[in-house]
Design a protein around this nucleic acid. Structure first.
Length: 259
DNA sequence: ATGACAATCAGAGATTGA
């Protein structure tokens, strides 16, 4: 089973690029972030005609996550538990029914800038809630993964110019500590486990020729529970997508699971 | 660097992103 995550930075602006990539890559499941669309405005039929089930959790203008799946989905839930007043659409879950059922969580973790400030407080509180849900997934002892745009530079080698990020919400010690806390519950970060070392990025800013200079950061991750990590066969980043016409500032990351 | 670049909503330019 091939599962991908892709921050598309707007479905309206990215429908062509996303369609081409889906046809080339043929993921069974694609977790999308920043659809920037109301549910009723998402081009559902376009993807259904390509053989995908479409489940969205959107809002107007900003944020928004979705699951496209060629396999059956069960028990779909929307929104990260733990704060009924949170109106930002950043979390969606479903069980994908393949050879083995996999609980799949798609997430768009808050950016948090500027830090300190209310947006950073929201990021840290969102991560506190994420840890609660993550612990539940570990306790369930079933194959599960959490994938998406974590907006966390987890270690200095995940940035081409780490010194430029020292005061940024993506790289502040509290952010990295919160990510580590979640990892330490027992998750495997798929790409790092298969491709350790520097120079792997998933985001390049639109500004200042970041792509041309390979001034990137790695912030899109797959976190696997232990029984899911046992199924991991491959994990790759589709870097070339960033060099195409009208790209997202993120590129897709995917895993192949023996499931 | 009050910078750049892109998307959204709106129908200009502010807001957000990372």
């Amino acid at each position: 089973m091939k599962i991908a995550t892709f921050n598309i930075n707007g479905i309206k602006a990215r429908i062509e690029a996303l369609t081409v990539w889906l046809q080339e890559t043929q993921p069974d499941v694609a977790l999308l972030q920043e659809i920037k669309s109301l549910d009723e405005k998402f081009p559902r039929e376009h993807f259904e005609n390509m053989g995908y089930r479409v489940e969205t959790h959107g809002q107007k203008s900003f944020n928004g996550v979705a699951i496209l799946s060629k396999l059956p989905l069960e028990d779909i839930t929307r929104g990260l538990p733990g704060d009924d007043s949170d109106e930002q659409a950043r979390w969606i879950e479903a069980t994908v029914i393949g050879k083995l059922p996999i609980r799949v969580c798609g997430l768009y973790l808050p950016n948090g800038n500027p830090a300190p400030g209310p947006k950073y407080d929201y990021k840290l509180d969102w991560m506190r809630r994420l840890k609660v849900r993550a612990q539940q997934l570990i306790n369930a002892e079933e194959p599960a993964l959490m994938a998406g745009d974590y907006n966390i530079i987890a270690q200095p080698e995940d940035a081409a110019t780490p010194q430029a990020w020292l005061l940024d919400a993506l790289h502040l010690p509290q952010s990295r500590a919160a990510f580590r806390d979640i990892m330490n519950l027992g998750f495997t970060e798929a790409h790092k486990s298969l491709h350790p070392g520097p120079g792997h990025y998933s985001f390049w800013d639109y500004q200042a020729g970041s792509w041309q200079r390979n001034n990137g950061i790695r912030i899109d991750h797959f976190l696997l529970t232990p029984s899911c990590a046992d199924l991991l066969l491959e994990c790759e980043v589709d870097i070339a997508i960033r060099g195409r016409e009208r790209p997202s500032d993120h590129v897709p990351v995917w895993v192949q699971l023996d499931s």
